[in-house]
């Protein structure tokens, strides 16, 4: 809609500068974390489109993430494909799965949409957990990274890989931003606010929702393919429903309806997890280093606090700050 959001662009600029600074000044470990954050950002942005823009709260989004990852693994290992074509094919496979499942899911609303997407996600997880062709519960390892030799780079170097995924994340941000600001984006927002009225006006509500579901699934598949390359390993855990829940929390923490917020949310949650599960962090605080093994407890409390008290997330806070400065 016509520039509803004065904060998004400066916010994105700040996030981009922070990412750049972290990459330039980062060590081996920082580059690994940056790669992880960039990949999760892509994943979170895809869900942000669905949840923030259209109001479709999916608890099964990890299904497409896992599909992208497994397709990349299977194509490169079983069929010895090159990574780049495998990445494209994996994204396409995730898109197909999203289209197929979306056809059913978009017919439901509210809590029933949550439940049916949960079922879809668990269906994929349950299949991968048992499928011998894909290593069942052991998963698959030894997935190569994209070949960047043609521009004289080695993607196995952490700084090269992290730069690549950061650039891909930036491209995804730009593309989604164009989409959100387009007439189609306005239709998605209209569905969020009053689906019934848009239908009464004659909007193609079902088409718009399905398309959004497929776009989100496709981008989640892309993120999945990248994570398979990053860790060189896939396991059914990638598709477990708690992964969908955590990505949803990233979207909430960042601020619903903001793409940059999704990136910030991914960064906050990833850094928080690394910090809380690091025993030296607790030692430095003068506490028992054993607390590190209870990081899930602290993350859980953090989730609850964020959902209860900070519903509009980082982006919402920034926006309110902006409004109070303005007047």
């Amino acid at each position: 809609m016509p520039d509803r959001d004065p904060v998004e662009r400066p916010f994105a600029l700040v996030v981009a500068l922070v990412a750049l600074a972290a990459w330039v000044g980062g060590d081996f470990f920082m580059h690994e974390v940056l790669s992880e954050i960039a990949i999760l950002s892509i994943f979170a942005m895809s869900l942000s489109l669905l949840v923030g823009q259209v109001g479709m709260v999916s608890m099964g989004h990890a299904a497409f993430f896992a599909t992208g990852a497994y397709a990349t693994a299977a194509l490169t290992i079983h069929l010895q494909w090159q990574v780049l074509p495998a990445l494209l094919a994996a994204t396409l496979i995730a898109a197909l799965l999203a289209a197929l499942t979306g056809l059913f899911a978009i017919r439901t609303r509210g809590i029933f949409f949550i439940m049916i997407t949960l079922a879809i996600g668990q269906m994929v997880h349950a299949y991968l957990f048992k499928a011998r062709a894909f290593g069942a519960d052991d998963g698959m390892g030894g997935i190569p990274r994209m070949d960047l030799a043609w521009i004289g780079l080695d993607s196995n170097e952490p700084e090269v890989f992290s730069a690549s995924v950061l650039i891909i994340a930036a491209i995804v941000w730009f593309l989604l931003r164009i989409l959100v600001r387009s007439p189609y984006g306005a239709m998605l927002l209209a569905i969020h606010h009053n689906e019934h009225r848009l239908r009464a006006l004659g909007g193609f509500v079902a088409h718009f929702k399905l398309l959004a579901f497929v776009i989100a699934g496709t981008i989640a598949g892309l993120a999945g393919s990248l994570t398979a390359q990053h860790t060189a390993f896939v396991s059914p855990d990638l598709g477990f429903w708690t992964v969908s829940g955590e990505v949803l929390i990233m979207v909430i923490v960042g601020g619903m309806g903001s793409l940059t917020g999704a990136i910030a949310g991914a960064a906050v949650l990833t850094l928080l997890r690394h910090t809380l599960s690091d025993s030296s962090f607790w030692q430095n605080l003068g506490l028992d280093s054993g607390l590190a093994s209870y990081w899930q407890f602290m993350m859980g409390v953090f989730f609850i606090v964020m959902v209860v008290f900070a519903t509009d997330g980082i982006h919402g806070r920034l926006r309110r700050l902006w409004q109070s400065i303005k007047g």
């Binding site: 164009i178 989409l179 600001r181 387009s182």
Partner: peptide, 16 residues
Amino acid sequence: GIVAHGIGHVAWRALA
């Protein structure tokens, strides 16, 4: 207006 003009599928051009 978007619905009336039938441009709801246009996702690549800014609304402005």
